[in-house]
């Protein structure tokens, strides 16, 4: 009996949530899971929120995770992590990229971007992981790999072997970006498992629990 895994990936259009969900689904498929992935891509390119739900289990019916049902929320942006927090299962984990992208009402001074979201999340969710994915990705050679840093952290919390993730990465990332993304993944993975892989060399451990 495969243990069900429900992951909510949230962020802002253009942050690479889709690739992250593909890698996750690839690993799940290799492990023999039934999978459903749901995403709403209406206005993603116009700076709106993007949400991808990945559900894995013996047999998955609903493509949607119920409120209070996500095992993990992988937030590519802090405000989005906060927005979707109600979806987290009691005892679930949130991984949040320490990046703020101001929505237009905030830019225009019509609304305030909440202060210290990371602190709030850490106070509410035991084991919340805050990651400087951009910094780590930059140290690995390309800030565009920030999404894969986050996938690395996610991988460290899920019950799949590291090899499967690396294989998925190979299958889903174009050849010429593979090197950087592998390093980004390992940096994230090392962070999640508590230590830094000395062989990776992607700068200082920027994560805090």
């Amino acid at each position: 009996m495969l243990k069900p895994v429900d992951v909510l990936l949230v962020g802002v259009g253009g942050q690479g949530t889709i690739l992250a969900s593909r890698i996750l689904a690839h690993v799940g498929q290799a492990a023999g899971y039934d999978i459903k992935v749901s995403e709403i891509h209406g206005m993603a390119q116009r700076g709106g929120s993007v949400v991808t739900q990945v559900r894995m289990g013996e047999k998955v019916f609903s493509p949607l995770i119920e409120e209070g049902g996500a095992d993990v929320i992988l937030a590519f942006e802090k405000l989005e992590g906060l927005r979707w927090l109600g979806y987290l299962k009691p005892g679930g984990t949130i991984i949040v990229n320490d990046q703020s992208i101001y929505p237009v009402p905030v830019l225009a001074g019509l609304a305030a971007y909440p202060e210290d979201i990371a602190g709030y999340l850490k106070s509410k969710v035991r084991g919340a992981v805050v990651v400087d994915a951009l910094g780590i990705a930059a140290a690995c050679g390309n800030i565009k790999a920030a999404n894969v840093v986050l996938v690395g952290v996610l991988a460290s919390l899920l019950p799949f072997p590291e090899d499967e993730w690396l294989e998925a990465l190979e299958a889903r990332v174009p050849e010429r970006f593979l090197e950087v993304n592998r390093a980004a993944f390992k940096a994230g993975y090392g962070l999640g498992t508590g230590g830094q892989d000395p062989g990776v060399g992607c700068g200082p451990a920027a994560g805090t629990r």
Partner: peptide, 11 residues
């Protein structure tokens, strides 16, 4: 939870 501003799509 602090008030969460909306993220409307924009041009």
């Amino acid at each position: 939870m602090p008030a969460v501003p909306a993220r409307p799509p924009v041009l």
